[in-house]
Simulated scan of single mutants.
Amino acid sequence: MATYLSIAQVCEMIPGMTKGTLSQLRFRGEGPKYRKPTPRNVVYLESEVIEWVEGTARIGTALKSA
């Protein structure tokens, strides 16, 4: 069965994440996938939040030049 998380639960799950940052990520289309079952309700699928966080893994801070 799917586990859905509220905005607050996602913020608790990811250290340093705030509701404002999560909102900006949604606005820019850069955050985890989300659902809006009603116009005022946003929920996230737990497995997709974990997948999104795992997709941000890095091994260095240097940028590659094109």
Rank of each mutant, 00 (worst) to 15 (best):
A8L: 08
G29D: 05
V10H: 07
V53L: 09
P39I: 13
G20Y: 15
A62M: 11
E12R: 13
I14S: 02
W52C: 03
A66R: 12
I59W: 15
T21A: 07
I59Y: 15
P39T: 13
K19N: 06
I14D: 03
K64M: 06
K19S: 10
R35S: 10
K33Y: 05
R35F: 11
L45T: 00
S23N: 12
L5K: 02
K33D: 06
S65I: 10
I59L: 15
A57M: 10
V49S: 06
Y4Q: 05
E46R: 15
Q24L: 15
Y44Q: 03
A57Q: 12
V43M: 09
L5M: 13
V49F: 13
P39Q: 14
Q9D: 10
R35K: 09
T61M: 12
L25M: 13
I50V: 11
P37Q: 02
E12H: 08
A62N: 11
N41C: 14
T61P: 01
L45S: 01
Y34S: 03
T61W: 14
I7P: 01
P39A: 14
L5E: 13
W52L: 04
A66E: 13
S65Y: 10
R28L: 11
S47V: 13
I59K: 14
I50E: 10
V42G: 00
C11Y: 12
M13R: 14
E12V: 03
L22Q: 05
V42T: 14
I59N: 15
R28D: 06
P39F: 04
A66Y: 14
R58A: 11
C11T: 08
